[in-house]
C-alpha cells in the first residue's frame, strides 16, 4: 500500500515538475518577444508554414465534420420530431467545440510534430549550438517566430474551419435532407452569439500557442540521435493533444458555465 502511494506521489511530483518547466519555458519565450532583435523573415516563414499551409487539412477536416454532424443530429432529432433545429445545433457545435478542438488537434498533428522534428534534428546535429556561437539566440530566432505564428494564425484557421464546417453541414442538409438553403443559413447565423464566436477564436489562440510551444519545447529537449528525434516528436504531439483537450475543457467551462 505504502509502495503504491509512494509511486503515485512520485508520478504526481514528476507531473508537477514538468508543468513547472513548461510554464517557465513559456515565460522565457514570451520574455524574448519583448526584447530585440526580432527576426521578421523567420516570422513570415512561420506564418506561411503554420497558417497558410495548414489551410487544406483544416478545410477538409471541417467540411467532413460539418457534414457528418448534420447527418447525426438529423437522425437524432428525428426521434422526437426536432429536425428543424439541425442548423442551430450544428452551428453551435461547430463554433463552440468541434471547430476549435479539431483544428487544434490537426495543428498538433501537422505543426507540432514538424516543429519538434525540425528543432530536435537541429539540436542533435549541433545546429542550435552553431546558432549560439553565431551570436543568435535560439529563443529569438527559432521559438519566438513559431509561437507567435501559432498564436496569430490558429485562431484564423479556427474561424475558417467554423465557417467551412457550417457550409459542409449546409451542403449535406440541402442536397440530401431537403433543407431550404436560405433558411438553413439564416438559422445558423441567427443562433450564434458574439460569445460563441469569441470563445472559438480564443480557444484557437490558446491551442495555437500550446501546439507551437510544445513543438519547440520537446524539440529543444530532444535526446541524442535519430531515436531522440523520434521520441521528441512523439512526446510533443501527445503533450500538445492532451493539453489542447484539457485547455478546451477549462475554456469551455469559463465561457459557458453560467
Amino acid at each position: 500500500m505504502e509502495h503504491v502511494l509512494g509511486s503515485i506521489g512520485q508520478q504526481v511530483l514528476r507531473a508537477l515538475a514538468a508543468v513547472g518547466r513548461v510554464t517557465m519555458y513559456a515565460f522565457l519565450v514570451f520574455a524574448h518577444v519583448l526584447r530585440p532583435p526580432f527576426y521578421l523573415r523567420e516570422f513570415k516563414n512561420a506564418l506561411f508554414q503554420v497558417g497558410w499551409l495548414s489551410l487544406p487539412v483544416v478545410g477538409l477536416t471541417a467540411i467532413f465534420t460539418g457534414g457528418a454532424l448534420v447527418l447525426q443530429i438529423y437522425a437524432g432529432g428525428a426521434r422526437f420530431n426536432a429536425e428543424a433545429v439541425v442548423p442551430q445545433i450544428v452551428a453551435i457545435g461547430m463554433v463552440r467545440e468541434l471547430g476549435p478542438v479539431l483544428v487544434g488537434l490537426m495543428i498538433a498533428a501537422r505543426v507540432t510534430s514538424s516543429i519538434a522534428a525540425e528543432i530536435a534534428t537541429m539540436k542533435v546535429t549541433e545546429q542550435i549550438d552553431a546558432l549560439i556561437t553565431l551570436s543568435t539566440h535560439p529563443f529569438k530566432y527559432l521559438f519566438v517566430p513559431r509561437v507567435l505564428a501559432g498564436l496569430i494564425t490558429v485562431p484564423l484557421l479556427v474561424g475558417v474551419g467554423d465557417i467551412i464546417g457550417i457550409f459542409g453541414g449546409h451542403l449535406v442538409a440541402t442536397q440530401s435532407l431537403g433543407f431550404n438553403s436560405v433558411t438553413y443559413l439564416q438559422s445558423s447565423y441567427n443562433i450564434l452569439e458574439t460569445r460563441d464566436v469569441v470563445s472559438s477564436l480564443v480557444k484557437g489562440c490558446v491551442f495555437g500557442g500550446i501546439a507551437t510551444l510544445m513543438g519547440c519545447y520537446y524539440g529543444q529537449n530532444s535526446g541524442r540521435g535519430a531515436q531522440g528525434v523520434g521520441r521528441a516528436t512523439k512526446g510533443s504531439v501527445e503533450a500538445a493533444a492532451v493539453l489542447i483537450l484539457g485547455a478546451n475543457f477549462v475554456l469551455t467551462s469559463l465561457f459557458f458555465s453560467v
Binding site: T125, E126, Q127, D129, L131, T133
Partner: peptide, 11 residues
C-alpha cells in the same frame, strides 16, 4: 568563430 566537428550547417 567555431567550426563544429560535424559541420553543423543550417540545412
Amino acid at each position: 568563430g567555431m567550426l563544429f566537428q560535424g559541420g553543423a550547417l543550417f540545412d
